[in-house]
Amino acid sequence: MTPGGAPEAQKKRSTENGSSDAKSAEGGPLIVEDSVFTGAEHDPDFVKQIIRYGGKDVQTCLQCGNCTGVCPVSLKTPYKTRNLIKLCQYGYKRIFFTIPWICAGCHRCHEHCPADINPAEVFVAIRHIEVREKGVPRFIRDSTALILRHGFGAIPSDDIKRYREKEGMPPLPNTLPGYRKVLSELEALFRKTRFTELIGLETGEGAAGERKARERGGEASK
């Protein structure tokens, strides 16, 4: 991503769709920084949806900007926390589907929020919505496939195995024969909560993700 790339693209798309969809916007286009958003991205139920997926009521935001001031990502990108919360208030949902998941989850915004909103948790709720409505980012599917296969998000290289032996450290759990049972437990739980379905591991797409994850694992062990 180049900083500023997504809003630029967004702006372009907004102007393209502007003529046909502007009618559905409530109160005309919204201007945030130098980007113009129209009704094409609008969803009146967005605020309720955020609450349903565990975020707080963004309508109580005072727009003080404390969150932006302490956000490490706002400092470096055009995505300012305060503006993003404003977009939530207006129900501009689809804009978020074009932004990469770059909240560090450091919760500094919550520490400084006078309205106790916790923007980081709002973004977590928006990710929940995105996963259910648009799809799952690649890296999520890859890491889930790795965890289902090995129990952990990475596999140790042969060098590391030799080091462990030399130092007399206990073997890693997932190299023991009994770990097969743990992996089947994990898979059973993921099926029970319908996580495999949500992530798309069942479909061909999921298999591709798993293959890619395997290749990466092979690289890591070199």
Partner: peptide, 28 residues
């Protein structure tokens, strides 16, 4: 020593996509 641990699970992968799966895996 406990030999049946799995990933904690990682917050960006699980907590961001499905809180239920995250909580169940962590509880395990």
């Amino acid at each position: 020593e406990i030999n049946e641990f799995t990933c904690c699970p990682a917050l960006p992968t699980f907590y961001s996509t499905d809180r239920v799966t995250w909580l169940v895996t962590a509880a395990r």
